[in-house]
């Protein structure tokens, strides 16, 4: 079953084209990766999907809803982790979780989520005193606290140490196993390879490849490299010098 459908999405800021022409679909229960260089249009794409930005053209359906017209309804079914956004410096971890869970009709158990994300020890720490990784984990917890059907996670492991990254991956798998569809924007091709069922490679506002990690590697043509990795494959697709 298709839960997200994007057709011919385009968005520019002034004369800066952020997304030129992007189309894809996401099936229920998959972990769908979006990778590509900085400025490729990943954030603009997922924020249009989640109704945070208004595209110039194209159609988007999420759970059969139009993210602009049915914004309020969609909010109840989607959890969004934004690439950049903070909380008040003096807000405590448990207060943030308790507060955000009060926004939903059927929230997840926030104490359990806090434990799953390794934040229980920090429950009384204020946001301003958390490390980068702890802030990031809290941000993921807030995206999941509403028991969403779809979770959109934008660069969730950027800035985490290796152990925290692996813990977060485990968490994402656990979320998917509960039936949540995950859209994962990432820089890390290791992360994409380990987590994602399918990956869309975006470059300069277009999708240049969309396939399973294995197929992307298998189809890679990288001159001078006998057994290319996913990283080789993606770089070959997005780096004009390598083409």
């Amino acid at each position: 079953m298709t839960v997200i459908e994007v057709r011919n999405l385009a968005k520019r800021y002034g004369d800066q084209v952020a997304v030129r022409d992007v189309s894809f679909t996401v099936d229920a229960g998959e972990i769908f990766g979006i990778v590509g260089p900085n400025g490729a249009g990943k954030t603009t794409t997922v924020e249009s999907v989640s109704g945070m930005r208004i595209p110039d053209s194209g159609t988007i359906r999420v759970l059969g809803l139009d993210p602009r017209r049915d914004r309020a309804e969609l909010r109840r079914h989607i959890g969004i982790q934004l690439q950049e956004s903070q909380l008040p410096d003096r807000l405590k971890v448990w207060e943030a979780l308790d507060l955000y869970s009060s926004f939903y009709a059927q929230p997840a158990d926030w104490r359990r989520l806090m434990a799953d994300l390794g934040l229980t020890e920090k429950r009384n720490t204020v946001f301003g005193k958390l490390s980068g990784g702890q802030k990031q984990r809290l941000s993921v917890a807030l995206a999941l606290v509403g028991n969403p059907e779809i979770a959109v996670l934008d660069e969730l492991t950027t800035g985490l140490d290796p152990q925290a990254r692996r813990d977060t991956w485990e968490l994402i798998r656990g979320v998917r196993d509960r039936g949540v569809t995950v859209v994962l924007v990432t820089h890390s091709l290791e992360e994409a390879e380990r987590l994602c069922d399918r990956i869309a490679v975006i470059d300069a506002g277009r999708i240049v490849a969309l396939d399973t990690p294995a197929a992307l590697v298998a189809n890679a043509v990288v001159p001078g490299v006998a057994r290319p990795t996913l990283e080789d494959a993606v770089l070959a697709l997005t780096n004009p010098l390598a083409r």
Binding site: S50, M52, A72, R76, G79, L82, S85, L87, F103
Partner: peptide, 16 residues
């Protein structure tokens, strides 16, 4: 400060 830090934006990802 709430707007600049994205506190309002984060809130707008929720039903509230």
């Amino acid at each position: 400060a709430y707007r600049e830090k994205g506190v309002l934006r984060r809130l707008s990802t929720t039903p509230v």
